[in-house]
């Protein structure tokens, strides 16, 4: 059997054969003997090369979330990965909306300006903290709908963006 998982930009291919509780696994070329002793309270109880470990796991849409010893791993199985690619990833979103209710502290861009991916657009005070909203992709600012001091609701339109078409040199 074979499962392909994506985790933080790395692809993990897990191939394995099963004999009762015991699985002979090969993860990206590395052979491992794993025993699956049980599933309790959303946790898989595993012995990996004889070492006992508990991994908590939930599915959330296309994601698989796993917690081990306080570390959280977010994975996407291969077939779902492809579906996601065709869906949202890389699609240009022309609207910046408020992720939470709060108060606009500062507007860091002006209409007409070009911004890069990750560039700070607004400072939003929410949940007792100052939060920076950044550009999800390179864009040109078409219209700014808020000014400093404005109270905004969850999902309220803050900024409209235009796609930046590469200019001919």
């Amino acid at each position: 059997m074979r499962t392909v998982l994506h985790l933080d930009g790395t692809v993990y291919t897990v191939e394995y054969t099963q004999n009762g509780q015991e699985y002979q696994c090969v993860v990206n070329g590395q052979p491992l003997t794993v025993r699956l002793l049980g599933v309790r309270n959303n946790a898989l109880i595993l012995h990996i090369e004889g070492r006992p470990v508990r991994a908590y796991l939930v599915h959330d849409g296309s994601r698989v979330l796993v917690a081990v010893e306080g570390q959280v791993y977010e994975m996407t199985p291969q077939e779902r990965q492809v579906r996601t690619r065709e869906g949202d990833v890389g699609r240009f979103d022309p609207e910046v909306r408020s992720p939470m209710p709060g108060k606009i502290l500062a507007v860091l861009v002006t209409a007409g300006a070009e911004v890069d991916i990750g560039q700070p657009l607004l400072l939003l005070e929410a949940m007792k903290m100052e939060n920076t909203l950044t550009a999800g992709s390179a864009a040109r600012i078409r219209k700014i709908h808020v000014s400093p001091g404005d109270l905004v609701d969850l999902g309220q339109l803050l900024i409209e963006l235009d796609v930046v078409t590469p200019t001919a040199a």
Binding site: T3, L7, L32, V34, V72, Y73
Partner: peptide, 21 residues
């Protein structure tokens, strides 16, 4: 930054075996 390394293999194995289940 979040450093996943210590338990990445465990997490990957858990997710893979669980998908089999």
């Amino acid at each position: 930054q979040r450093r996943g390394q210590p338990h990445t293999l465990t997490a990957v194995l858990a997710a893979a075996l669980h998908s089999t289940l």
